[in-house]
Design a protein around this nucleic acid. Sequence first.
DNA 1: TGCATTTAATATGTTAACATATTATATTTG
DNA 2: CAAATATAATATGTTAACATATTAAATGCA
Lengths: 157, 157
Amino acid sequence: MKTADNTFSFDKAEDSPGFLLWQVTLLWQRELKKALEKHDLTHAQYVLMASIHWLALHHEQVTQIVLSAHTKIDPMTTSTVLRTLQAKGFLFRQEHATDTRAKTVGLTESGKKVIKQAVRTVEKFDATFFGPLGEKTHDFNKKLLLLLKQKENGPEE
Amino acid sequence: MKTADNTFSFDKAEDSPGFLLWQVTLLWQRELKKALEKHDLTHAQYVLMASIHWLALHHEQVTQIVLSAHTKIDPMTTSTVLRTLQAKGFLFRQEHATDTRAKTVGLTESGKKVIKQAVRTVEKFDATFFGPLGEKTHDFNKKLLLLLKQKENGPEE
DNA sequence: TGCATTTAATATGTTAACATATTATATTTG
DNA sequence: CAAATATAATATGTTAACATATTAAATGCA
């Protein structure tokens, strides 16, 4: 369908990876949000709690800046969401052993219990959402990793 | 790296398509935001204006609900962002010819000028961002479309 | 060692994304 | 036709994502 207008280089919006990526993520987030309601968690809260749990299994001291780097949630958002989670009793924040600027973050028993259940919910949800990709899921992951890595020149955890 | 914990079914967070998808989109949005600053547009504003322009070339009357469906931005967000764009003088909203509930939306001359420049910026940005995919970009698009399409046919609430 | 530079966290303010509920109008159907 | 239902837009309120700027402490280096 050719038109007289030459604003777009794509003949269909469906050929734009950016537009598609964003739309898929909108959809994914919208549905995941509903799936997380039963745990009384938002997506950001879930990601941070899951990452704390994950990092705690591999690191000693999980600080907010480490969390921010791992999740790619910016430090300010990380700070405010963690405060909410602390108010919910799902985590504690205490002064770092050697760096008094930093705060060490950890899940409470209550938090651990919640996140374990939530992880099951999310993994089940993702299995359904990405089901159509079938065995091509790994290939999809590889492409996403490629896009992530291009910008990654800084220090990693 | 095996641990005693069995919360996660993935041994690495990098194997989770949901986590990766979300992270790539965060990165993409963050950088696109900066690229759009020179046009004084947010991403949502850009998407809506580009879609109005696009739809106007293919449809007669672009209503807010049509825009919402096309962009997958929810109707409420669509409404408020369009109001902002109207205040900026980039678009008009007038009563629909036959459906008095609806509003027909269109770009002003000023809006058209801005969006044409912004589209160039975004297409250039996307070319760089998705550059690492090379000729696999089309395959990436296909996978994203697959994920989008499942919902269109799927169970409706 | 002392001073400049980084860095960790956060106060403040803007826009987005969404839920829920409401208003007004359109459409369906009994 | 009238009543029930669906739809287009929006008021109100919550959380997220981010920018900018600030505070205080760690680190670099001359």
